[in-house]
Amino acid sequence: MNTSLTLDERLRPAGKTAAAFEAFTQAVWTQPRIPAPLLELCRLLIARMHQADGERSAGKVPVDAAKKAAVLAGDWSDAALFTAGERAALDLAELYAIEPDTITDDAAAAVISHFGDAGLVTLIEALGVIDGRIRLALLFNAMEDK
């Protein structure tokens, strides 16, 4: 089964463009503005919204088990264990996954207050990579099943 984390092998026949996408993915996950564990929580949140069950057990980076459980249960917004910055990022991720045009000025401003303008741009790029890789993994799995 393909997941967002194993997708590169499936894309490799694309040659240079696959390598370029892999490099962009790597850059997104290693940049210093948005911590990788927070991106992992965003990945789990978006996977949950896509009902991509294969993504639940896979892990890009280690995350706090209680936070992971809250995100996977869909009750992260009520859980006191998240910081304000994490809440802001997860809130934006949820809106992004619904539709980007549902992102409110307040939601974007909350991210900027914790991570700056560059952090908002970086987070949005990262969400694009995460959402896109989950979509492709789901699509390839479905095509291979049929």
Partner: peptide
């Protein structure tokens, strides 16, 4: 297979770029 993979990379690139533009307002 190579063409399907190329379409996949192109789509994800186009999609994340458009979503970025909309998200930034």
């Amino acid at each position: 297979e190579a063409e399907i993979a190329q379409m996949a990379v192109a789509l994800v690139t186009f999609n994340l770029s458009s979503r970025c533009a909309v998200s930034l307002g």
